[in-house]
Design a protein around this nucleic acid. Structure first.
Lengths: 101, 101
DNA sequence: CAAAATATATCACTTAGTGGTATATTTCAA
DNA sequence: TTGAAATATACCACTAAGTGATATATTTTG
């Protein structure tokens, strides 16, 4: 019964890990794990996101610092944004294009 | 002397283009061209940027939605961030890591 | 001290992103 | 209304960014 709060938390963390709920078993990266989930976007959703912000593919690309051919291929479903570009799309969806200005 | 404002602007734009000041000759994408220049980062500068925000490579990677090995290679100068990842670094440098939360 | 967390170091692989060109399609000014 | 400019679609070969894995210091901390 002499467990510290930290001990309890750590045990809980281990259990969550075993149960497959948590990817990590430590708390050091806990704040990072609390980051919002990065959603994926379908080709249509990307187009909608751009339209909602009322910009052309070229301007949209400029905001993201990518080539316009990349935006085209996203919207045509030939390439899929991932990693850093997906993060940018999530930012736009959540806070608007202007956040990149 | 009967030039419209637009005509004058367009002529000026053409001249700026000829002079090599502007990449484009049109005004349609003008707002996009007004976007802040996306700066590049040296390996050391990336490390400094991460340090300034007091996070580990793993946490930093989580914020950017990239793998930690990518951050490692950036900081070791083996790979260079570009496009969307460079945009994210510029955002962090200008507005802080929290903007990605 | 010992264990856990963090950082460094490679490496082969996948595929995103590039930059080019060519061709509709749409918009807008004369 | 008509033609030029802007925008969008389409395709392609290439480069290299980012991945995910593993193995090994190095540092932090209980």
């Amino acid at each position: 019964m002499n467990k510290t709060i930290l001990e309890v938390i750590n045990e809980t963390t281990q259990d969550l890990h075993k149960a497959g709920v948590m990817k990590e078993t430590t708390l050091r990266e806990f704040d990072a794990l609390c980051l919002p989930v990065v959603k994926t976007f379908s080709a249509q959703q990307i187009t909608q996101l751009r339209m909602k912000n009322k910009v052309s593919q070229a301007v949209f690309a400029a905001y993201l610092n990518i080539g316009k051919s990349t935006v085209q291929q996203w919207e045509q479903g030939h390439k899929k944004p991932s990693g850093p570009s997906l993060k940018l799309l999530n930012l736009i969806a959540k806070k608007g294009l202007e956040i990149l200005a």
